[in-house]
Design a protein around this nucleic acid. Structure first.
Length: 428
RNA sequence: GGGGGGUUUCCUGAGCGGUCAAAGGGGGCAGACUGUAAAUCUGUUGGAUUAUUCCUUCACAGGUUCGAAUCCUGUACCCCCCA
């Protein structure tokens, strides 16, 4: 039994616990079962979910059994914690599809096959949907004093705002999450719930309910929220969230997100999200201070996370794409490789004919690809040295493109300036 | 109700009969520098084009003139002052 508490402590992952003195020993005594919940608001998790998922993984590696709870039922209600507005309700079908997608992704982080500490995946819809409204009120609701509920931070915030309010539905959210904990204790012997610091109120609600219904002592622990030094949310870019699914966020974009993490955030990300040990991380801290330009921390972070989520092949393709995106000449690649590397780049099909004979005018190609709005603009780009075919600069406006210039069977890679790309696909 | 000022190219803001596709700044784009950061510097910034020109553009519609963003008339919208 490895000391998970000490592990979480040095990483800065313990924000609050329900029993500071005894929890460490309790976790060392024997293998425990713990759980964390995940919202099925989409068919993929995003990097925000990575933190609790990694915490479960750390518990598992220390010999405990993690339960990942997917909120098929709670997702229908919407957690008021940390939300400033009432949630839109998802349809049952949508939720079911989302749960399936999320389950697939969890398999990359947690080991579900190990006999002793194998992870368990549950969906609270499975037990919640069997409740009738009356049963729920009699068995569960009876145990919740409303004045306590109103004291919870998540509810209080919404009640104080007279421009927002909170629906009865969201108000009841904590009952569901509290009962989840009790249910998991009865069915799986789960005794500890972990979550982000905004989950404290929901977690303690579950502990209270466990005491009342089962006379059981349950435990709770929260971790800090993963935020950036500039106050904005981690895992969000101008173009949207960073997802774990390769369909939504290509391995390349995922890798790039971590490469671009600000220096001030890099140490936190390494501690929170990777499994590098303390010496390695402290060495990186030092390197970051002394040789920031090398960006060693960001590189390691990106490698660790991309490798874990997208596998060695995903990491390799992201790194290959990175080299190419940053100027390596493109040669001897296949259509499929190029299409994969440039998955996020717009491409346009045009006739193969255009390459024959005289060839295609360089400026026309840029306009066709959408990199220049007019021929005049294309001319300027070329004259200023900003036009590249397959990452080779083309400087003359008289140049003609022929089949010689294809990077692969049918694809030509155009680039304007440092990193604006577009593909032209020449077809019959 | 009376008086005055305005409407310019992505934004701002000069222009007040030809040398105006229209100054300056911002933004955008490209280049250098750099850590795939920030800052800085340079170039560029209506469209087509044999680079020579041509076309469209200065609220809208008419007019004066060889020639109008610039002058006149009307229309719309905006702002300010006095009642």
């Amino acid at each position: 039994m490895n000391d998970i508490f000490a592990e979480l402590k040095w990483r800065g992952l313990i924000f609050q616990t329900t029993d500071e003195e005894n929890l460490q020993k309790w976790l060392l005594d024997q293998s425990r079962t713990i759980y964390a919940g995940f919202d099925p608001t989409a068919d993929s998790l995003h990097v925000g979910s990575l933190l609790p998922l990694m915490i479960l993984r750390r518990f598992q590696k220390c010999g405990h059994r993690p339960i990942a709870l997917v909120g098929g039922a709670t997702g229908m209600i919407g957690d008021p914690s940390g939300k400033s507005a009432e949630r839109n309700l998802l349809s049952v079908d949508q939720l079911r599809a989302n749960v399936v997608g999320i389950q697939q992704q969890m398999k990359k982080v947690l080991d579900f096959d190990n006999a002793d500490s194998g992870a368990v995946l549950v969906n609270n819809f499975d037990w919640m949907s069997r409740f009738s409204f009356l049963d729920f009120l009699r068995d569960i609701g009876k145990n919740f004093p409303v004045n306590v509920m109103m004291g919870k931070e998540s509810v209080k915030n919404r009640l104080q705002r007279d421009d927002l309010g909170i629906s009865y539905t969201e108000f009841s959210y904590m009952l569901l999450q509290a009962y989840d904990f009790v249910h998991l204790n009865k069915e799986h012997g789960c005794e500890l719930q972990v979550g982000g610091s905004d989950q404290w109120g929901n977690i303690t609600a579950g502990i209270d309910l466990g005491r009342r219904m089962l006379s059981q002592q349950l435990y709770g622990m929260t971790c800090p929220l993963l935020t950036k030094a500039d106050g904005t949310k981690m895992g969000k870019t101008e173009s949207g969230a960073i997802w774990l699914s390769p369909e939504r966020t290509s391995p390349y974009a995922f890798y790039q997100y971590w490469i671009n993490v600000a220096d001030e955030d890099a140490g936190k990300c390494l501690r929170f999200l990777t499994e590098l040990n303390q010496e390695e991380i402290e060495a990186l801290d030092k390197a970051r201070e002394e040789e920031a330009y090398k960006r060693e921390s960001q590189r390691r972070l990106a490698e660790e996370l991309t490798g874990m989520i997208h596998g060695p092949e995903g990491l390799a393709s992201a790194q290959r794409a990175t080299k190419i995106f940053f100027g390596e000449e493109i040669d001897n690649l296949s259509d499929s490789q190029l299409v994969e590397i440039f998955a996020d780049v717009s491409s346009k099909d045009i006739s193969k004919e255009r390459l024959s004979g005289e060839g295609l005018n360089l400026m026309d190609a840029f306009v066709e690809a959408g990199l220049s709005k007019s021929k005049g603009e294309a001319r300027r780009t070329v004259q200023q040295g900003g036009a590249y075919i397959n990452n080779r600069r083309r400087e003359s406006i008289d140049e003609r493109l022929t089949a010689e210039d294809l990077a692969s069977e049918t694809v030509m890679v155009l680039r304007s300036g440092k990193k604006k790309y577009a593909l032209l696909r020449f077809r019959d």
